[in-house]
């Protein structure tokens, strides 16, 4: 599996990360190295092996559907980059 600059640009778009033009070649090379490392997995015989999602195969614990948290909007919004009238501000989405 070879990975090209165009693949990295697509991944960066999917992950919403702007890449630096000066380092993109280096990023492509190092990601290719990491993928070569993980490709060693392909040699493993995993026929019939159940994938393991949790170390102790625990199942999701459920709790009663009742309100347990109090509203802390002021505390949470105090650390936000931009808020107004209790709302988070972002650049205009619809013209």
């Amino acid at each position: 599996m070879t990975i090209e600059r165009a693949d990295i640009e697509k991944l960066a778009e999917l992950a919403r990360i702007e890449l630096n033009e000066a380092t993109i070649a280096e990023t492509t090379r190092s990601i290719a190295d990491v993928l070569a490392l993980v490709d060693q997995l392909q040699a493993a015989d995993t026929e019939g092996v159940e994938p393991m999602a949790h170390p102790t195969d625990a199942v999701q614990r459920l709790r009663p559907d009742v309100v347990t948290e109090t509203n802390q909007r002021e505390a949470f919004q105090a650390i936000a980059p931009a808020t107004e009238a209790g709302l988070y501000l972002v650049p205009k989405v619809i013209e």
Binding site: L41, A44, T46, V49, P51, A53
Partner: peptide, 12 residues
């Protein structure tokens, strides 16, 4: 090819 395979390796 990647995530599922890795989770299988994890069980091994």
């Amino acid at each position: 090819a990647y995530y599922r395979k890795a989770q299988q390796a994890r069980r091994l």
